[in-house]
């Protein structure tokens, strides 16, 4: 039975030109992966979109058209959470990527001692769980916590800062946490990129009298451009979807000053009266924003 099928398939194949055969082999390799992506990524996206057109509570859903999207335009909490994630995005991504680039530059120096130790040390935060680091940060930045004690003992502060109590200090705390957690991760990408730059280019530049700053801006950054683009898109994407940090570090507080869009989606689905249609609409807006930002970054970064 199986043998005859194979025979038939072979006979079928014989009818094609060599070019077509190659293409078919290509498709043969692509199809399993493509099918998986379609069924686990694209199908849910389509279903989420259909869900976002439905209104109602719990499982009493009915078609509501664009009502959810109209409501989003006037939802103060949605606007607030969107504002918050853009604050994180604008503050955190540039700081983190610059820091990662600088650290990668330093650690790429072959004359540096204990190089692999530093590399590991900076990368280790990425191996910690999001939840546990958020909880540790919360206790470190408590009113009588580690950070305030250190700062007061160094006489840098007169009285302790209530990090979790003020809207901006709480946002800054999230930014500090994110930077600590993700800088090392991005640094690894840059380090890998730097390995691919031929050292002779630097040597030539040195002979021509280029300063360290010139070498950074004229050689390193242009050569790393594709990787910088990749990390920017990944960080933007990750920051817009931030959940663990805001949930565990500040729980959206004080007065929703750190509430993220993902946490709002969580609240809409599981804490408040469940409105999955509306939550899906919020999620879909985030998807569109991420898509637009990534597209813009690709356009800006693409030279071809």
């Amino acid at each position: 039975m199986i043998n005859s099928t194979i025979e038939k398939f072979k006979a079928y194949k014989r009818g094609f030109s060599i070019n077509k055969k190659h293409k078919m082999i290509g498709w043969f390799f692509v199809i399993p992966g493509a099918l998986l992506i379609f069924s686990f990524y694209f199908y849910p996206i389509v279903r989420a979109f259909l869900l976002s057109l439905q209104g109602g509570v719990g499982n009493n859903l009915r078609f509501a058209g664009a009502a959810n999207y109209k409501r989003l335009l006037v939802d103060p909490l949605f606007k607030k959470s969107l504002f918050n994630v853009f604050v994180y995005l604008i503050l955190q991504v540039p700081i983190m990527l610059t820091l990662a680039l600088i650290l990668a530059g330093i650690l790429n120096d072959k004359t540096l001692r204990f190089r692999s130790f530093f590399r590991t040390a900076i990368f280790v935060p990425c191996a910690t769980s999001l939840v546990s680091y958020a909880i540790i940060f919360r206790s470190m930045f408590a009113l009588d916590g580690f950070v305030n004690t250190i700062l007061m003992n160094m006489n840098l502060l007169g009285e302790p800062i209530n990090w979790l109590g003020g809207p901006w200090t709480a946002r800054i705390l999230i930014v500090i946490g994110l930077t600590w957690r993700w800088t090392g991760y991005n640094m690894i990408f840059y380090l890998a990129g730097l390995q691919n730059i031929d050292p002779s280019i630097y040597e030539a530049a040195k002979i021509d009298g280029a300063s360290a700053f010139d070498r950074l801006t004229k050689i390193t950054i242009p050569m790393l451009k594709p990787i910088i683009l990749l990390t920017t898109i990944m960080s933007t994407n990750g920051t817009l979807q931030i959940f663990d940090e805001t949930k565990n570090l500040t729980n959206g507080g004080p007065a929703n000053a750190t509430l993220s869009v993902s946490q709002y989606i969580y609240r809409l689905s599981f804490e408040y009266v469940p409105r999955f249609g509306y939550a899906a609409a919020v999620a879909f807006i985030v998807f569109i924003i991420v898509a637009i930002l990534s597209f813009m970054q690709l356009k800006v970064g693409d030279e071809r």
């Binding site: 004080p254 007065a255 929703n256 408040y272």
Partner: peptide, 17 residues
């Protein structure tokens, strides 16, 4: 009531303010 969690969050926000 049904909207107790919403009420709790809004009251908490108001108190903080």
């Amino acid at each position: 009531g049904i909207y107790n969690y919403e009420a709790r969050d809004t009251i908490s926000t108001a108190i903080t303010q």
